[in-house]
Nucleic acid binder design. Structure first.
Lengths: 226, 226
DNA sequence: TGGCTGGGTGAAAGTATTTTCACCTATATG
DNA sequence: CATATAGGTGAAAATACTTTCACCCAGCCA
C-alpha cells in the first residue's frame, strides 16, 4: 500500500511527528525547511506532495498548517487511537505463594495468571509503553507508607528483568510470599533494596537468590477508598 | 492566578479544546466565529485576548492557528481526555481559585467544568455509583502523607454536600485556593476536619464559611509514578 | 448620569503561509 | 544518450489569517 520513503522524505516525516507531538499542531512549510536546511519553500513543498502521494500525510489545500498524519493518530496524547479498550491489563493475584528465581528468558511465573483485567487510563502510564508487558498486582505488606503505598493498593507493574530497571525506581518484589515495593538499584552485580522505613537497614541480594523475585517497575498506584 | 471565565468565554474555551482534540491543531479565528455565531473576526479576537489575559491560553502573535491551551502539557491530567469506556469522568482542575460556599442544591461551582475525562475501572469504585456525580481533581497540597495521599495525586471524588458524607470518610476540600484531603465529620452542625498530621490541631468551620468548600467524598486515589 | 466592561459588526491593513513558475543538479535506468 | 526522479534555489502570485480602527449596544455600578 504505502510506498517506501526515501531517506530525505523520512526525515521530513519524522520531523512532522516530533513537531506535532511537542507543539500540538503541525508545522508550516517554512518551519520544516528551517529544520531540514531547505531554503526554498518550494523544495519542502515538493516533499510534502510526495509524502501525500505515498499516503503518509494528508493535506488541507491552501490551509495554514494544513498537514496531518495518516496512520492512526493525529492526537499526540492518545497512544494509538485504535481500540478504546487499550489499557486492559492482566490481573494477577498478589501474595500467597513462594517466590521463585527466574531461570531464563521465558521465566515461569510464581503465580498462575488469572484472566482478570483492570481498565487503566493511558494518561496514568508512560507514553510509549507496551501494554503486553503490564500486569496488575496488589501490595501485600505494610511498611511502605513512607513511599505512599499501603497494603492492598493496586499496582500497575511493567514486567522487566532487574537489570533493565532505572536506578532508584520503585519495583514490585516477591519477598518470600509477600509482595512488597522497594526502591531499587543494581550495584556490583547485586540487587539493592532500600527499605522505605528507616528503622530497617537496606537489604541486598544475589540476582539468583530464590527468596527475591523482582517482578518489575511500578508505574502507577491505585487505591480504592470507599 | 486564573480569573473566572464568563459564560461566553467558557464557550470559546470549550470549543478550543474540542477542536484541538478532534483536528489535532488549533482553529483559526474565523473558524471559532463560525462555531459560536460571531460574524466579525474582531469579535472573536477580543475574546481570545481576554482568554489570554486570564491565563487560559497562549497566543503566538501573527501566527496562523497560534492559539495553544495552558494547563501544563506534561501534566497527564490537565489535557485531553475522552477515552472511550465505561467510567468516563468529568475532569476538573485542582487548585487555583478561591473557595466558595455552596448556597443551595444548585450550588455554583467555583470552577467552570471542563470536558476533560479520565478512564476509571468500575472495580475501583463503589458498586452502585452515579457516574454523573463523579469528578476528578488533583491533590494540591502536601501534608497528607499520613493518609497516604501525596501532592499531585489524582482523586476520584463523588460530589456531595457535607451533610451526606459518611462520618470519618475522606473528603476533598478547597481550602482557600488549595485542594486538600481531610478526614471529615459533621458534629453540632459544624464541619470538623481532622488534620492528618499530628502536629496540627483539628480544624472546624461553619457550613457556610467561604474559606472551606467541601467538594465531596474521595472514592479512589491514583498516582502516576513513572 | 456617566463611565466601565463584555460582546459585536464591518472593513481595511498587514503579516503568514501555501502554491506556482522557471530553472538547476545530481543519480539512476532502459 | 535520452529521460525520469529526487531534491533544490529564488521569486512572484494567491490565499489564509491576524491585527487594528471606528463605531455600536446593553448591563452594571458609583
Amino acid at each position: 500500500m504505502r510506498d517506501r520513503l526515501t531517506e530525505r522524505q523520512n526525515q521530513v516525516y519524522e520531523f512532522l511527528r516530533s513537531y506535532i507531538r511537542t507543539n500540538g499542531k503541525p508545522p508550516t512549510i517554512k518551519e520544516i525547511g528551517a529544520q531540514l536546511g531547505i531554503k526554498s519553500t518550494n523544495g519542502v513543498h515538493k516533499m510534502i506532495v510526495a509524502l501525500e502521494k505515498k499516503g503518509y500525510i494528508r493535506r488541507a489545500r491552501h490551509e495554514a498548517r494544513g498537514i496531518s498524519l495518516i496512520g492512526g493518530e493525529h492526537d499526540p496524547f492518545s497512544d494509538e487511537g485504535d481500540v478504546p479498550g487499550v489499557a486492559l491489563l492482566k490481573m494477577k493475584e498478589g501474595a500467597g505463594r513462594r517466590a521463585r528465581s527466574l531461570t531464563s528468558e521465558t521465566a515461569e511465573y510464581p503465580l498462575p495468571r488469572s484472566r482478570q483485567q483492570l481498565l487503566v487510563d493511558p494518561k496514568l502510564l508512560p507514553e510509549d509503553i507496551e501494554m503486553e508487558a503490564l500486569l496488575i498486582v496488589t501490595a501485600g505488606d505494610d511498611g511502605m507508607s513512607q513511599i505512599g503505598i499501603w497494603k492492598g493498593d493496586v499496582l500497575v507493574v511493567e514486567e522487566m528483568d532487574p537489570f533493565s530497571v532505572p536506578p532508584q525506581a520503585l519495583v514490585a518484589v516477591l519477598l518470600y510470599d509477600r509482595l512488597v515495593v522497594r526502591r531499587f538499584e543494581v550495584a556490583d552485580r547485586r540487587l539493592h533494596f532500600r527499605s522505605p522505613d528507616r528503622t530497617y537497614t537496606d537489604e541486598s541480594a544475589d540476582p539468583d537468590d530464590t527468596d527475591y523475585f523482582v517482578i518489575g517497575q511500578v508505574l502507577a498506584v491505585m487505591r480504592k477508598l470507599a
